[in-house]
């Protein structure tokens, strides 16, 4: 049976438990639990080859949150949604370096507009599908 490597404290702090390592704090949930906040230091966490930031895949897959906020130095932040990362991100797995499976999202894909664009597209498709079913009922 697969055991979860991610644990959350009552105050919403998220810890990653990896074998042979101490628990690592990877971020925190807001009060409602619908936003995942995380901190990134470009010097340390930015993947230069793909121009992207990585996120724990297990957390994205099993989490109930929708919004993701990445806090950068000097008060800057990036915003996106969980679904957007899952859909437009790509896997990179640095297992030998002691990291877990992560889904990377390119810097160009961040932003509220991008994630909203996807939602808009989804809504349009949904409406279209509904229309088709309506016509089929008439026919």
């Amino acid at each position: 049976m697969e055991t979860s490597n991610i644990r959350v404290t009552q105050s919403g702090e998220i810890f990653l438990y990896l074998p042979n390592q101490k628990p690592k704090k990877i971020g925190w949930f807001n009060e409602n639990g619908d936003t995942f906040h995380t901190q990134r230091n470009p010097a340390k966490h930015f993947h230069r080859n793909s121009n992207s930031y990585g996120f724990n895949y297990e957390l994205l897959r099993d989490g109930n949150f929708s919004r993701v906020v990445v806090h950068l130095p000097f008060g800057e932040h990036l915003e996106t949604s969980r679904e957007h990362i899952l859909e437009n991100g790509f896997f990179l797995y640095f297992k030998e370096q002691g990291f877990e499976k992560q889904r990377f999202l390119a810097l160009s894909e961040f932003g509220k507009e991008k994630s909203e664009e996807r939602e808009k597209r989804l809504r349009e498709r949904e409406a279209k599908d509904n229309q088709q079913t309506l016509f089929s009922q008439v026919a």
């Binding site: 979860s4 810890f15 099993d62």
Partner: peptide, 18 residues
């Protein structure tokens, strides 16, 4: 810190209300 697995985590009810 008493941590629970991710799937069992339930956020505290937000009495302030959004």
């Amino acid at each position: 810190r008493e941590a629970t697995p991710l799937k069992e985590y339930k956020p505290k009810p937000n009495y302030g209300g959004n």
